[in-house]
């Protein structure tokens, strides 16, 4: 499904991502882990077109999408959430999701219909699926942090992605919130047979749901494989797991 080869990105001389190879199979749940500043978010930004790689390639189902514009990559079936929550703060929760449907169904060029009347059923269903029915008319900017993360997940799901990238979906959440969110993600990934690639600092979460783990350290992949292999890897234990 996703194939990253020899990806490099420097910020004024500092190599944030260096020679990264990564493959995610269709239907797989894969995690990228690594200490702060390892380059996880940068890698996600490179894959989704938010940043342009210096060298290397990103392929989606065999198609080269290296450096394509974000809106094109989204239309090819890649959804994402951001580490620092990214929603439409002045719109209500309902309007947020409805907007994502409008765009995904290609209605954005419609100057004349009433937006509020469109895709109401789809929006309601998605609201229920991500558990935000009670908050449907809340202005998104005033939601609690955890709810904003749920909404962001909803925004990504509205465009019906085949591949979903989640950058620290439980960052800043309490233990219960984390638990609920992971349940939610697992359930949705199952229902929609999504391919999932996520980053996460909570090792319990990672080893609980990931089928494959890549470990990033100072921009490089130092281990890549099944959870048991990664857990046993001496270098991983030294640079990373040892700290926890």
């Amino acid at each position: 499904m996703l194939e990253v080869r020899g990806l490099n990105k420097s910020f004024s001389g500092f190599r944030a991502v260096s020679d990264v190879d990564l493959t995610v199979e269709t239907g797989q749940i894969a995690a990228v882990i690594g200490p702060n500043g390892a380059g996880k978010s940068t890698l996600f930004n490179l894959i989704t077109g938010h940043l342009r790689p210096d060298t290397g390639s990103v392929r989606l189902d065999g198609r080269d999408i290296t450096g394509a514009a974000p809106h094109r990559i989204v239309r090819m079936g890649v959804g994402r959430s951001f580490q620092r929550t990214n929603i439409f703060a002045k719109l209500t929760v309902f309007e947020n999701l409805q907007a994502a449907f409008l765009v995904h169904r290609g209605r954005g060029r419609d100057f004349w219909s009433r937006a509020a009347a469109l895709y109401r059923d789809d929006t309601e269903r998605l609201l229920a699926s991500i558990g935000l029915v009670d908050q449907r008319d809340t202005v998104a900017g005033t939601l609690s942090y955890g709810n904003q993360k749920q909404l962001e997940l909803g925004l990504a799901l509205a465009s019906d992605p085949a591949l979903l990238l989640l950058d620290e979906p439980t960052a800043g959440m309490s233990a219960t919130e984390t638990h609920d969110t992971i349940r939610l993600i697992e359930r949705i990934a199952g229902e929609r047979s999504l391919t999932l690639l996520f980053t996460e600092h909570d090792m319990d979460v990672v080893f609980q749901i990931a089928q494959k783990i890549a470990v990033l350290h100072q921009g490089r992949v130092i281990a890549d494989g099944a959870p048991e292999e990664v857990r046993a890897d001496p270098e991983v234990r030294r640079v990373y797991l040892g700290e926890h």
């Binding site: 514009a69 990214n86 929603i87 409008l102 765009v103 060029r109 219909s113 465009s159």
Partner: peptide, 23 residues
């Protein structure tokens, strides 16, 4: 009030996120 107008408000609120819903 049209879908086009709604898309514009997503750009106002968050151009980065707007791109990632496909705008």
């Amino acid at each position: 009030r049209s879908p086009f107008g709604r898309v514009l408000t997503t750009i106002r609120d968050n151009p980065e996120r707007a791109a990632f819903i496909g705008v």
